[in-house]
Computed example of a mutant assay.
Amino acid sequence: MFRAAILSIVICFAAPVFAQEGAMTAQRIAEIVLDIDPDAQLTPGGIELTLEDIPVLIVMAPGADRMRAMVPIASVEDVSAEEMSRMMQANFDTALDARYAVAQGRVWGVFIHPLSPLEREQLLSGLVQTVNLARTYGTLYSGGANVFNGGDSAEIFQDLFEDLLGRGQDI
């Protein structure tokens, strides 16, 4: 039973196809970010930019072939057990490639990826998903429009949809 459930989850999820590009570098990420936010600041620790009025920090460790985009969301002290559980559910089915994380007393939206195989479109998608985690925190807890089947969030979304339908006019 469990094996069949896992198999159905894997089959339902298809990764998008991205054009093949050369190896991503810290310099190339900086160029991409400056194209989307000319006011972005290059710092010794990475790049700071703003998307949709949300601050984003990108850090890179070329020696470890890793990068991370992070968005601060809330103080951990302000997070209820129910909200923490909801974030973990979202990490399974609606956060997509971004994730909710906790570090240094804060809740963060993060996108973590190996640096060299990262494609431009993947970077941009990861940034959008990370910003969406911050924008939808407390409501939909979503990195985007997709829901990974087999999780708990689809039912929550369906409940919200039915609630909104109930508020509409009878036709």
Rank of each mutant, 00 (worst) to 15 (best):
A4T: 04
S8P: 00
S8K: 15
V10Y: 09
C12A: 12
F13V: 12
A14K: 15
A14V: 15
A14M: 04
A15M: 08
F18Q: 12
F18M: 09
Q20T: 15
Q20I: 08
G22F: 03
M24T: 00
T25L: 09
R28C: 00
A30R: 07
E31Y: 03
I32Q: 09
V33D: 06
L34M: 14
D35Q: 10
I36H: 05
D37F: 07
D39W: 12
A40H: 05
A40T: 03
A40N: 09
Q41S: 06
L42Y: 08
L42P: 06
L42C: 08
P44T: 06
P44I: 05
G45T: 01
L49P: 01
T50P: 06
L51R: 12
L51F: 11
D53F: 10
L57N: 11
I58Q: 05
I58G: 03
M60G: 02
A61S: 10
G63H: 10
G63Q: 11
D65N: 15
R66E: 15
R66F: 01
M67G: 07
R68N: 07
M70G: 13
M70I: 10
S75H: 10
V76N: 01
V76H: 01
A81R: 15
E83V: 03
M84F: 13
S85T: 15
M88V: 13
M88Q: 14
A90P: 03
A90M: 13
N91H: 10
D93N: 13
T94A: 12
D97K: 11
D97G: 04
R99V: 03
Y100N: 04
Y100M: 13
A101S: 07
A101Y: 13
Q104D: 07
W108D: 05
V110P: 02
V110S: 06
I112C: 06
I112Q: 13
H113S: 14
P114V: 05
E119I: 09
E119V: 11
Q122C: 02
L123H: 09
S125Y: 06
L127C: 10
L127V: 12
V128P: 00
V128K: 02
A134F: 03
R135D: 08
Y137S: 07
G138Q: 12
L140N: 05
S142R: 09
G143Y: 14
G144L: 13
V147F: 07
F148Y: 03
F148G: 02
N149V: 14
A154M: 09
Q158H: 13
D159P: 00
D163Q: 09
L164P: 00
L164F: 09
L164V: 06
L165Y: 03
G166R: 15
G166Q: 14
Q169I: 10
D170E: 11
D170P: 02
I171A: 09
I171D: 14
